[in-house]
Structure formats: structure tokens, C-alpha cells
């Protein structure tokens, strides 16, 4: 069966200066990233800031061109596809609905806009159907984003993403800007939409608890590389990569018995410019050996995980 979304060996680099007068240097934002998501499944994409999550999202949406590699959605390459076709396949929901919704446009216009732009008919009726689908009362069609709560605005963003009937929904930190009580409402909505519409989802987040709740499988990224991928159960029960373990341990649970996790990470921060052949996590890794820095680390199968670490057992 063809996966609904497939990324093959995606690489994206930026040329940046570290200081005003410094020479430009190459920063590898995403390196050899391959991912597959089957129809109706949810992939969780996790990692800390600067790990390449957002670059990967922009590439999937066709907003950024990768230096090399291929993106296929429903078996069609999106690199050469007209925008009008692409937007009917894949749509985003972003982190901050305050920033992604134009404050001077009415909800009716905001939700209907994609349909208007890409030649849809019956816009008013469709907007009504979408508002109903995401659990917003029809009377809000005439409101402005400023009159809505954060949760309602995120519902508007979801309605707008769904009005073209996409097969894939990319959610980039959709609940990070929301309060806990509202976050639960949006998670419930995404879960029911997934079931109702058979949506395939990529859920990007740094909140592992939310990812665990929503995703069928999880890919962990570190400085542009996928360092581990596994089914959600396997990853949370038995993570193989030292970085995944650190990440899981650092996630604070609402349980006073758990206390603060002991951190075995070195003081070094992740340096996206650091170029060496071996493991990118090695400078911070509690299990580091000399060979980690020298030998290129390939993805390999270990138990139920795909892991990029020669020392993982």
C-alpha cells in the first residue's frame, strides 16, 4: 500500500552568518530525513528547538524547497505539482492562531478564503458546515478573531485548514499557545476529526505527553536528523536512543512523587553549526565514546525501534 505521505532523503541547508561581520556558514537544518505515514495514521514529530521540526513541516507543505529529496502525498510528487492541487492534499494548523488569522477579517471570510481562492462554489454553505464540524456556533461567522477565545480561534484555524477537504493535516504545535483546559478541547477535536474524516496527520510538538496521546508512531529529531522512530507504545516503554531517553526523563509529570529527573547531560548546548562525521548528540551524551564522534551513525533496527546510535543496546 502506498503511504499517504512519504519523505525520501530530504536535505535542507541554510547559509547563515553567526555575527554581523562573520563569513556565511552552512547550517544543515534537515539531513537525510525519510518518513512515511500510512493513511489514517498520526505521526508524532518531536524534538527541541532547532532540531528541524519546523523546516520539515515547511518542506512537507511545499512552502520550502528542499536541496534534495522527494515528497510524495497520496503517491503524487508535490515538488512539481501546481499549488491549486497541493492545497487540496495537505493543509497546516499552526501554533499561534492569533498570528495565523488576520485580525481585520471576519471568521466567514477567513474560513472561506481558501475555497474562494481555489475556485470553490457554495462558499457560504461550506463555511457553515465547517464551523459546525469544528464545534463553533454559526453566529460566530460574523465575528472578528479578536472577539474569540484562544481555543475558538484555534478551531477557526482548523476549519480553514479543512475547508478544501485535504487528505493530510500538518499540526505544528497546535496546542502550545493554549491553556491546559482548552488544550484538552482541541485534542479531543483533532481526535474526532481524524476518525470522522479519515485524516492522516503529522503532529509536531515538544510536549511528549500530548504526542503520546495522539500519535500512532513517533519520530524523534536532533539537529536535523531523525535519531529514533518507533511505534508510540514501544518508544514510551523502551526508548533506545540516549537522547530519546533524556527527553522522556525530562518530561515533567503532574506527580509530586516523580520529583525532578536527574540530568546526566553535559553543560554543552546543541550547536547546529558543529560539523563532525559522527553522532551529533555525542558532545552531550552520557554514554559517549570516542568512536561516536568519529564514525558516521546510521539508522539501524533495534528491537522495535529504528535508531541512529551504535552504542544503544
Amino acid at each position: 500500500m502506498i503511504p499517504m505521505i512519504r519523505l525520501t532523503d530530504i536535505r535542507k541547508t541554510y547559509r547563515l552568518r553567526r555575527g554581523m561581520f562573520a563569513p556565511t556558514e552552512e547550517l544543515v537544518a534537515v539531513n537525510d530525513l525519510s518518513l512515511e505515514v500510512a493513511k489514517g495514521k498520526t505521526l508524532g514529530l518531536v524534538g527541541e528547538s532547532g532540531c528541524g521540526k519546523s523546516t520539515a513541516v515547511s518542506i512537507m507543505l511545499g512552502l520550502l524547497k528542499p536541496d534534495r529529496g522527494e515528497i510524495e502525498i497520496a503517491g503524487q510528487k508535490i515538488g512539481t505539482m501546481p499549488v491549486a492541487d497541493r492545497v487540496r492534499l495537505i493543509q497546516p494548523v499552526f501554533q499561534n492562531p492569533n498570528a495565523s488569522l488576520n485580525p481585520v477579517k471576519r471568521i466567514q471570510t477567513l474560513v472561506g478564503q481558501p475555497l474562494q481562492l481555489y475556485g470553490g462554489t457554495n462558499v457560504d454553505a461550506e463555511v457553515k458546515r465547517m464551523l459546525d464540524l469544528v464545534g463553533l456556533p454559526a453566529r460566530l461567522a460574523d465575528a472578528y478573531p479578536g472577539e474569540l477565545s484562544g481555543g475558538q480561534r484555534q478551531r477557526v484555524a482548523i476549519a480553514r485548514a479543512l475547508i478544501l477537504g485535504p487528505r493530510v493535516l500538518i499540526c505544528d504545535e497546535p496546542t502550545s499557545a493554549l491553556d491546559v483546559s482548552v488544550q484538552a478541547q482541541i485534542i479531543n477535536l483533532l481526535l474526532s476529526l481524524k476518525k470522522e474524516l479519515g485524516l492522516t496527520m503529522v503532529f509536531v510538538s515538544h510536549n511528549l505527553a500530548v504526542v503520546e496521546h495522539l500519535a500512532d508512531h513517533v519520530a524523534v529529531m536532533y539537529l536535523g536528523q531523525k535519531i529514533e522512530e518507533a511505534a508510540t507504545d514501544a518508544l514510551f516503554a523502551d526508548a533506545c536512543h540516549p537522547y530519546t531517553r533524556v527527553l522522556l526523563a525530562a518530561t515533567l509529570l503532574p506527580d509530586p512523587q516523580a520529583g525532578l529527573p536527574e540530568q546526566k547531560l553535559g553543560a554543552a548546548a546543541a550547536d547546529p553549526f558543529a560539523a563532525h562525521r559522527g553522532c551529533l548528540f555525542a558532545p552531550r551524551c552520557p554514554a559517549m565514546r570516542q568512536s561516536c564522534v568519529e564514525d558516521p551513525q546510521e539508522l539501524r533496527t533495534l528491537r522495535e525501534s529504528l535508531v541512529r546510535c551504535e552504542r544503544a543496546v
Partner: peptide, 26 residues
């Protein structure tokens, strides 16, 4: 109570289950 119930906890909250959200707004 509502706040604590609304947070998914890995290994405790069943995956994909509906979370007990607090309805309405502040």
C-alpha cells in the same frame, strides 16, 4: 480537579481517549 484531569499522562490516560476538558471559557 478539572485542570488535573485535562492533562494526558503517558501510561495512565488511554491513548486516543477523549480527555475530560473543562467546557466554556474564563
Amino acid at each position: 480537579k478539572g485542570l488535573l484531569a485535562a492533562i494526558p499522562v503517558p501510561g495512565v490516560t488511554p491513548r486516543g481517549s477523549e480527555l475530560p476538558a473543562i467546557p466554556g471559557r474564563v
